[in-house]
Design a protein around this nucleic acid. Sequence first.
DNA 1: CTGAAAGCGCTAACAT
DNA 2: ATGTTAGCGCTTTCAG
Lengths: 348, 348
Amino acid sequence: MAVTMRDVAKAAGVSPASVSFALRGDPRIKQETARHIIDVANRMNYSVNITAKSLRSGRTGVIEAAVFQLDRPFYAQLLAGVSNAAFDRGIQAVAQQISTGKVGHEKSILEKVANKFCDGVILSAGGLSDAEIIELSRGKPVVLLDDQSYQGPFDSVFTPCENGAEAAVTHLFEIGCERVGLVGTDFMPADQACRSMRVGDRRLIGCHRAFERHERTLTKADTIQLFDWGTDDAYRAVSRRIEEGDFPFDGLFCMTDAIAFGALRALREHGIGVPDDVAVIGFDGVREGSYSAPTLSTIAVDIDKLAREAVDILCERIEEGRCGAPAMPKHVTVGYEVLVRESSNRTR
Amino acid sequence: MAVTMRDVAKAAGVSPASVSFALRGDPRIKQETARHIIDVANRMNYSVNITAKSLRSGRTGVIEAAVFQLDRPFYAQLLAGVSNAAFDRGIQAVAQQISTGKVGHEKSILEKVANKFCDGVILSAGGLSDAEIIELSRGKPVVLLDDQSYQGPFDSVFTPCENGAEAAVTHLFEIGCERVGLVGTDFMPADQACRSMRVGDRRLIGCHRAFERHERTLTKADTIQLFDWGTDDAYRAVSRRIEEGDFPFDGLFCMTDAIAFGALRALREHGIGVPDDVAVIGFDGVREGSYSAPTLSTIAVDIDKLAREAVDILCERIEEGRCGAPAMPKHVTVGYEVLVRESSNRTR
DNA sequence: CTGAAAGCGCTAACAT
DNA sequence: ATGTTAGCGCTTTCAG
């Protein structure tokens, strides 16, 4: 068995309480005694049992970031950002994958840990409803990433969906694209999209705006739907469209960079030149975009800021000792930058 | 405050112990009563306090995988594998990043969580010494990934460094490369390399073997050193060599796929054709390799198997109630496959 | 300035 | 078949 505080107390000839105080630098213990206690503790290789500590104090000092897939670049980079932000605040962050590939497992996997051994959760909620989130979060603060019920009851951080998408499509028009295709969103009319708050739909709204401003109408024919937002899925979907001869586009806005990588490959395999035949722009700004061939133009969202904001808000709520949904939920949207690289670099 | 077991017991008119048993399906409780208790618990939205449970039982049901960077594809994919493997065994896995970009923080960050709120750790140890690992792991089982003290005192899983590297270089020779360069390893003579067990050195050993078998001698001039194994670093290093006119290679074996992506970009930007001028092969088999342009040949290691083995061994040790280094450490090396894609696809 | 003691919520002997 | 009870290791009043 590991060495406990009692052991240290005994060895140092003091009470467990004094050890506790000494170890955390409480001024109630005389400098000298504290020094001695710390010494003994070190010699004995003591370290506190975080489990016991948490049971008593109600805090673990750990926050968790839960996302669908650890191995998607955007999430991976976000998680790295969360880790760093947490580290800077002196707390621990761990990441958890909530999808197992099999559907319907999100809840079961979340249920077990998310709200128990950590003080709060940053959650990329995907398909969960408000009610489910409330139930899952049972009393612990939650910050959502791109919450589907925009301006809903939870604290959330958002990617700049509407504006970013608008900027992306505008960019394509500005470099001379006549026929812009959208990869990764289900078509719906602007007014209907405005009522949804799913990420894809919000990006679609931005596209609608850009189309309008350039006096065009966005129709279903301008979109390529995807099942999930994986690179494979995008590759297959774009390939299929090309092969079916249903690919009239000279510009492509992909809802994520991961999608764009799949599209790029499909284009390349079918001998379609990028950016000359088709200009491509993605969304996210993952690092991989500067290593693709051609390098990927993108709406680079400030992933680090996104992470920092999420951690900041979460820590604030934890301090407050929040339970349940906050009275005044915060909603933060981070900035973006139109990063023009090779995939859309063409002189008009 | 959250609802406790006591509350449920009171509401159900039984004792806390019965609730505990009922909830975990212990046969000691009559079917009917158990049913009722579970019902009440659900209605009250009860869920066990994992902290208290762990304090009592000494187990948390959580394992942790700690790696340097969450946002490197190889690690990301490994972590996803660990999550899935853990899920299949009914336990939780969380991932932790142990590097913050700043050096020397690995230990401090590990110290705080790794061995406390989880039952065991899968650790990509990097620069930690045996002694440090022992100290950090204080009593909890650890499984190392590519342990630097090969065949050392810890359970470990290994990537097939020597054989994989040998296969990679052999492949390059077989497609007709005359001058094979190695990116990402510090040169040392074969005998010296054999004494080191760092990943880079072990892969170098494989290279030595391949060179020998093809009656060539591997020298320092055949290697391109890197600071870390990042894509950026590789990009810069390869670019520099090309610009300095010190690039006589017609084949490149990159120690990781991430390195290869950087090399590919450097080559491309300098107008060097792949695979015709220079054939390139990486190591790892990350998914991104099938989306690069050209697609990346690689030594595809069985990442999923790696993850599963690590989880299996760890869980076994946890079952055993292991403390400290195991008496008979297990060392598992997973298989690989030479995946020939465009970057080395040339007809002799 | 330090020690004694009461729990945090749960589990598992031991009693009933 | 169920209830009682004694802790797990720590923090934190409250006494001394």
